[in-house]
Design a protein around this nucleic acid. Structure first.
Lengths: 140, 140
DNA sequence: GTACATGCAAAACTTTTGCAGTATG
DNA sequence: CATACTGCAAAAGTTTTGCATGTAC
């Protein structure tokens, strides 16, 4: 039987078992919608053991199903990657409602080259986050 | 009497006291050279109480004397800002030796505009980190 | 049926707080 | 000499681990 949900399929295909607690954690993350911490997930799924929440989140992180978002204040939270977008991308975080949008970086190449030249570093990865106010919060 | 060290002067001028533990923490940070965590500092200055290390680091962060660096794996560490460079800047982290170089972002404006247009966000802050290998490690 | 996954509880960490004593400005 | 700061120890919070039990495949 083939699995309908793409995330559950990815889990299964990578050799991991599709268990009730894992489904519960995934559903919770979808319900939370925005970014969340392990504590958020645990709180919204009290039936799942604390350790399992951490173990599941670590697994999902390794599989690139969730990704880290670094907030303005340095706190690190997580977010489900958008469908088929386990690609490299960045985040814009709304400081009012917490909404996060993703975007792909194109123009960053130039900055990267400049920095490589100026510092002598060979750069192979980066992290970029923007902070501001989303259209809705901005309008108010 | 005027204070020779620019950081100590900044501390004093902002209405804080120049105490032995604070000097010890600052000296330790300079010794560590690179980025460090609260634990690194505490470990290198056993004479200073644990709580004081945390309180001092919080203070230095508020005064923009140290800044956060987010590592590749999401861990957040700290680093002394370079002299007179409490300005906005970014970091390139060597994944081999841990060395961190700072740089100012110029070309980021274009990326920022693109993202603002594409997402509808009004962007007022950002965070950018590059990861790679420094010239020395790269040469080896 | 077997290996993987879970839940629980304890352990290991990290960071914060209350308070009595100390020392800076 | 007032009050900002410190150290200690306890508390609060977070993440990990060991182990017996359960369950997906």
């Amino acid at each position: 039987m083939s699995i309908a949900d793409p995330i559950e399929r990815a889990l299964s295909r990578s050799g991991h078992r599709l268990t009730a607690p894992r489904r519960a954690v995934l559903d919770t993350m979808r319900d939370l919608g925005n970014h969340f911490t392990a504590e958020d997930v645990q709180h919204a799924s009290p039936a799942v053991g604390r350790a399992t929440v951490f173990r599941t989140m670590k697994l999902l992180r390794d599989l690139d199903i969730i990704c880290q978002v670094v907030l303005d204040d340095g706190a690190v939270v997580y977010q489900l990657n958008e469908e088929d977008d386990s690609q490299h991308h960045h985040h814009v975080v709304c400081s009012e409602c917490g909404k996060v949008a993703e975007f792909a970086s194109d123009g960053l190449e130039r900055v990267l080259d400049d920095v490589a030249r100026a510092t002598g570093f060979e750069i192979d990865a980066h992290r970029l986050e923007f902070y501001g106010r989303c259209a809705a919060c901005h309008a108010r």
